[in-house]
Design a binder for these strands. Structure first.
Length: 235
DNA sequence: AAGTTGCGCAACCGCCGCATT
DNA sequence: AAATGCGGCGGTTGCGCAACT
């Protein structure tokens, strides 16, 4: 039933793409609730945003994932789980939708091939459940108050102050998710293993200890000269 | 050549957190 | 403190196309 407020759904036409592109170029990204009106599109704000982010946005990389990208994706997924937006953020030109789609396909292939190789359905299920059981490290959202010392002044201006410095210093504050995570790792220290990425170690809560402990873990997705502190802060 | 199946991608949906009122 | 609106995210669905029978 088509009411007056009903919005168009389904595939986008070239004309709609042009309107949306022109609108974003004119007004910039954001204010998505205004975009349909501004662009003269009979689409909901979410649809506009998604279309822009996943398709129209410049610098979006198309085509197959390179070996490096796949490798990084696997490692990132191991660390973060299904945090597609975070993973995509580490893959320049790739969108979270791309990563998610690729991963779902990749996993399907992997499970299928495992099934085929072993010719035992049970083992394939085990492989699948291994992935599901995988305990992942998830950033714990914490409110950063405006009065937090680390948010005062220029600390987060990475051009003036090293990011790792900020991250290391931030770890000494209270209420940061990585600190909570460190608490967790202390709690789990008896077991020594939190997921197979081994988040354990000293109890002093210094992030550079993390670097030492995490560096042995395959972490090719860290840029040259970048350490875990940088990476975690980046996230 | 026609029908069927499987895959990849684009898009939708529902939920959540945050900011504002 | 509660209600509301918005942006953002992850899971899921559906369509179009290529491969296969």
């Amino acid at each position: 039933m088509e009411g007056p407020s009903s919005v168009r759904k389904g595939a986008w036409s070239k004309c709609e793409d042009d309107l949306l592109r022109a609108c974003v170029q004119l007004y910039g990204e954001g204010k998505w609730h205004l975009v349909p009106q501004r662009a003269g599109l009979n689409r909901c704000r979410k649809s506009c945003r998604l279309r822009w982010l996943n398709y129209l946005k410049p610098n979006i990389k198309r085509g197959d994932f390179s070996e490096d990208e796949v490798d990084m994706m696997i490692r990132m997924h191991k660390l973060l789980g299904n945090r597609w937006s975070l993973i995509a953020g580490r893959l320049p030109g790739r969108t979270s939708n791309d990563v998610k789609n690729y991963w779902n396909t990749y996993m399907r292939r992997k499970v299928y091939s495992h099934k085929k190789d072993n010719n035992v359905e049970k083992q394939a299920d085990e492989a699948k459940s291994t992935v599901q059981r995988h305990q992942v490290i998830k950033p714990i959202p914490r409110a950063l108050t405006k009065t937090a010392p680390r948010l005062q002044g220029k600390l987060f201006n990475s051009s003036k102050v090293g990011v790792s410095e900020a991250a290391g210093a931030a770890s000494s504050g209270s209420g940061n998710w990585w600190e909570t995570l460190l608490e967790n790792k202390k709690d789990n220290h008896e077991g020594n293993i939190i997921n197979n990425t081994c988040f354990f170690g000293g109890a002093d809560g210094e992030l550079d200890l993390w670097d030492e402990e995490l560096n042995p873990i395959a972490c090719d997705f860290l840029s040259e000269g970048e350490n875990w502190s940088d990476f975690l802060l980046d996230l």
